[in-house]
Design a protein around this nucleic acid. Structure first.
Length: 424
RNA sequence: GGAGAGAUGGCAGAGCGGUCUAUUGCGGCGGUCUUGAAAACCGUUGAAGGUCAAACUUCCGGGGGUUCGAAUCCCUCUCUCUCCGCCA
């Protein structure tokens, strides 16, 4: 959520920045400012009335203590004369507050100045390319065929148990999945991230805090009886650990990592892109989250990109790093780098990590703050990134390392997996 | 599922209709003392809105009510804890 003070002080700047996200918010901003103006005028009036009521009430207490019935009655009549004017003012003020809030939450975060202009993924800027493309034979198999050939994943069985998008990992497939999770977590904790195992369902306040509500309501599974949302990413419970917290400056930076399954309804789907592991309703992901001093967040963002990049390098996967354009960024993001790996058999780049600086967008909703040197309350910055999302990594590993009768595995997971390759 | 207790400022924990819009302790910050630190002592210290700064207003789990006045009384919801039951 954008800070009202920022909108009030720099309305034209806010409008201009939102244009980078291809949003013409001019009239929306203007109505927010008008509402705010109106609300504050009303507030002055309301507070004057409240103040008067308070002071007369105090007087009444004193007259009663002195036993002066005449004065007491006189003051009571004075209160009665204007007291009725307060509730309507109060109600009007609450209404304006609510309207203001409703408008504010519809505004996406402002993109950072480094964000390139653009509308579609084609406008994203390639920052770096790394790793080596494998040379595969003409009849190389896509991962869904490899999964069947080596009996690693059963998509049809998932259909039977639940529905499409809920694959069942079997035998070596399950073990490989577990090995990679373990490796990713170890890699993150070695870099200083604290491991958490958070709940997989969160309440409404948590879903609102990270920006999933009200923007992405339909994308989350919802347990109606208890009003719990299945997490679309562990970013939600992790970041919300610090909701409503005033963090001591010497506790910064806060660095967290977690492995969780992620649940996404993904209402929109696009035919050929949804095959195999490319797009699932349930998938595994290891996430990293940081909550940092506002002056540090961009340095930390770069660190996080490099952190994930090295992880990809250790897996020997060909990758590229994109800086997302305004049109392709998420609602809550100020700047996002996507890391993609090249799936050699599908001949396609697959997004495996998204590293984002939210600046104060999430922390403003969650009231995650610290007291600076001069004792002033300030919002912290929050960031997160996948490190890494499992299914597409698995897809690439299988496809890029396929041999006639086996699939080779990167050295870093040999010990975790217990073997150097998957045999038929 | 049954019975009971409770929710107060970073934490602990008083207050149970007006001189408290919140006692006290811990923690934090500043100082005295000290070569330095610890201890001790003194001072200071909740959040939001508002203002140049103040005044002022709001917040004692959420919502509603009674009253001139509510953290304090009533209703309601949510959550937590204890005991019992069930259970991995």
């Amino acid at each position: 959520m954008l800070q009202l003070a920022v909108i009030r002080q720099h309305p034209e700047f806010v409008k201009a920045r939102l244009k980078v996200k291809n949003l013409d918010a001019a009239s929306l901003i203007d109505s927010i400012l008008a509402l705010d103006e109106k609300k504050r005028k009303l507030q002055v009036e309301l507070e004057a009335a409240q103040s008067r009521l308070n002071s007369i009430s105090k007087e009444i207490g004193q007259w009663i203590a002195k036993g002066d019935q005449v004065k007491t009655d006189e003051k009571k009549r004075e209160v009665a004369a204007f007291k009725a004017s307060i509730p309507p003012l109060q109600e009007k003020s609450n209404q304006l507050d609510q309207q203001l809030q409703d408008l504010l939450v519809t505004l996406p975060n402002l993109p950072a100045k480094e964000v390139p202009l653009g509308k579609t993924p084609e406008d994203n800027v390639v920052v770096r390319i790394g790793g080596e493309q494998p040379r595969l034979s003409e009849n190389a198999l896509a991962h869904w065929d490899l999964a069947k050939k080596f009996n690693l994943i059963d998509f049809e069985l998932g259909n039977k148990l639940t529905g499409s998008g809920f694959p069942v990992y079997i035998n070596k497939g399950a073990r490989l999945q577990r090995a990679m999770i373990q490796y990713f977590l170890d890699y993150n904790t070695a870099a200083g991230f604290i491991e958490y195992q958070p709940p997989l369902m969160v309440n409404e306040a948590s879903a609102f805090g990270t920006g999933q509500l009200p923007d992405k309501e339909g994308q989350m599974y919802f347990a109606t009886e208890d009003k719990f949302y299945l997490i679309p990413t562990s970013e939600v419970p992790l970041t919300n650990i610090y909701r409503d917290a005033i963090v001591k400056e010497n506790e910064l930076p806060i660095r967290m990592t977690a492995y969780t399954p992620c649940f996404r309804r993904e209402a929109g789907s696009y035919g050929k892109d949804v095959r195999g592991l490319n797009r699932l309703h349930q998938f595994d992901k290891v996430e990293i989250v940081q909550i940092v001093h506002p002056d540090r967040s961009y340095a930390v963002l770069d660190d996080m990109v490099v952190h994930v990049e090295r992880l990809l390098q250790s897996l020997k996967l060909p990758y590229r790093i994109l800086r997302l354009c305004g049109g392709d960024m998420s609602f809550a993001s100020a700047i996002t780098y996507d890391l993609e790996v090249f799936s050699a058999a599908q001949k396609k780049w697959l997004e495996v990590s998204s590293v984002t600086n939210f600046e104060t967008f999430q922390t403003n909703r969650m009231k995650i703050r610290f007291k600076d040197e001069v004792g002033k309350m300030q919002l912290l910055h929050s960031l997160n990134g996948s490190s890494l999302a499992l299914p597409r990594i698995l897809a690439c590993l299988l496809e890029n390392n396929q041999q006639t009768d086996s699939i080779g595995l990167p050295e870093v997971i040999h010990d975790y997996f217990g073997a150097a390759e998957i045999k038929g």
